[in-house]
Design a protein around this nucleic acid. Structure first.
Lengths: 339, 339
DNA sequence: GTGAAAGCGCTAACAG
DNA sequence: CTGTTAGCGCTTTCAC
């Protein structure tokens, strides 16, 4: 059988209370006693039983993370950020991958089970009423990452600003007919980026041409290369001839590039392209993009959760992070291309 | 405070033992009693406290998964497979992302903590002696996924066979000078695929030309697009002029395509290319590849772990799965291209 | 069929 | 500074 604090207590000739104190760095222990207990513990190869600890402490050292089961770089990075931020406080990460929205609700229910976790992080999940209702009932600490809702703490990305900056950049490099390739209308990030697109055009007194706006459909809310390809091709077939394209994600931008090249158009000569995310594959492909602080979103979310756990009365706060423009070859100004 | 079995017991006028029996589907309970308890439980909105259950049962409903923190589709799919296979038995997934090998050891230590999890799944992790040693000490149920070691159960991919099939396919479609673009030599999957390459050539009495073998370096063991690009470019610069390329991963293949096109070579006209993995982005790019049953690896691994938990005396078993060739446009036979 | 009672391994008052 | 003693919430003999 495993070694428990009783074994240590016996061998070190102290009570289990003292052993527990030593193990929990309680200062009210004599130095020699501490030494002795520690050495016996080491000698016996003692490992605390976290389940028993959790039960006695009436707390959990687990944090549940509900995250879309999409294979993107984004979620891996967010998860890494979460794990790293949690590591120091001894918390481990319980993942709940959700492939669809309804699965998200099921996973949340699993995550919500009593005693399960100290808190919950919900990543990139659109806020359905069923979720809010469940979260309200269970008075658990919750932090939203890459999504928001007035009732909860959140760490989010200013997608509208991101869209604005992307389009503003296209305008700066000389584009005058800018197409928008957005994901499903039900995706909040995508519609926010759309709003940024509209705002950027408005800021230069340019009209929004609805014929230059294409919506990507399909799985993963249209955030796929093939959806980007199809939408771009549709746009071109309808006679649209943009000189700039803002795609609401890098994977879509890859599809856009492919469609443009298939149509014999040169990038950035004929058309300039900006994506969103800054995924590594794209980084290499030299696509200009809006960088999202993925790892940071995760680590900030986890840190916020920890704070909230330590001080439950903290007011609700939404920390918004602006994506940053990373200009690369797909938006090199025309003069530079000619030269 | 939360509702416990004591509350149910009181309200249903039974003992907590009976409540526990009902909740655990113990048949030794009178039907009416069962009814009553169940309805009170539902009325009170009772939720079992899994930590307390785990402590009392001396078991855990958590499974730890140590997995590389790489952003590939592969790991997301494996995780999904694991989660889904575990869901029915009520197990949840504790992830331990490891960015480097040494981090893998640290994460394993976390996973190994006593009482933590019912078992451990180790995904795509090369077997260092430090790992084996730790796993030996902790007599936990362990299943390796996408890696193997004689001392443990494993679900793995026949990478050598995969390499063989890929190269065999290139030979079938007319290639005679086939280059191999492999990842770091310390990567087992990569060297196994290399072995398959050698075997496929040998099976047709063709020599292995070392000038046609390039090793990708860099992060993630060289499994990146840029490493593939660099290696391919190096190969071409050294005067190699293959008519077929087998890249040990799809991301590398993407880099290969880019390098080939930059060099003015046509695919599949001048050079044919086969990758490995079948990631979605690549699926769209129409690259021929070796499909790996990722989701299945995960679910089989989890299922194996569950079996082992149920019956600890099961003999060690390594279930090997062959990847399947998915021929696409990058290996269309020459005649077809001309026609 | 049901209840009393003894844990699971640890923490946390409360005394001393 | 240290030990005694209740629990944490649930499971599980062992009697009845």
């Amino acid at each position: 059988m495993y070694v428990t604090i009783y074994h240590i207590a016996e061998k070190a000739s102290v009570s289990i209370a003292t052993v527990s104190r030593v193990l929990n760095d309680n200062p009210r222990v004599a130095p020699e006693t501490r030494e002795r207990v520690l050495s016996v513990a080491a000698e016996l190869g003692y490992q605390p039983h976290s389940v028993a600890q959790n039960l006695a402490r009436r707390q959990s050292n687990l944090v549940s993370v509900v995250v879309p089961a999409m294979s993107s770089h984004f979620f891996m990075e967010v998860l890494r950020g979460i794990q790293d931020a949690l590591a120091a406080s001894g918390h481990d990460v319980l993942v709940h991958l959700a492939k669809t929205r309804s699965e998200g609700v099921v996973q949340l229910d699993r995550a919500l089970r009593r005693g399960r976790s100290a808190g919950i992080l919900i990543v990139s999940t659109p806020f359905l009423s069923s979720l809010v209702e469940r979260l309200g009932r269970a008075k658990q600490a919750v932090v939203l990452v890459d999504c928001e809702h007035p009732g909860f703490n959140s760490i989010s990305v200013d997608n509208k600003r991101g869209g604005f900056l992307a389009v503003d950049h296209l305008l700066d490099v000389g584009c005058r007919k800018i197409a928008l390739l957005m994901a499903s209308r039900s995706s909040t990030p995508s519609s926010d980026r759309h709003a940024g697109y509209v705002e950027a055009l408005a800021s230069r007194d340019m009209p929004v041409d609805e014929n230059l706006v294409a919506v990507c459909d399909g799985e993963q809310d249209g955030f796929t290369e093939s959806a980007g390809f199809d939408a771009m091709q549709r746009l071109l077939q309808h006679g649209a001839r943009p000189d700039g394209v803002f795609a609401t994600s890098d994977v879509q931008a890859i599809g856009v590039l492919r469609a443009l090249r298939d149509a014999g158009l040169d990038v950035p000569g004929d058309v300039k392209v900006v994506g969103f995310d800054d995924m590594p594959l794209i980084r290499y492909a030299e696509i200009s993009t809006m960088q999202q602080p993925m790892y940071r979103l995760g680590s900030l979310g986890a840190a916020r959760l920890l704070e909230q756990l330590a001080n439950p009365d903290l007011p609700i706060e939404n920390s918004v992070h602006a994506p940053e423009l990373i200009p690369r070859s797909t938006t090199v100004p025309v003069e530079a291309v000619i030269a």
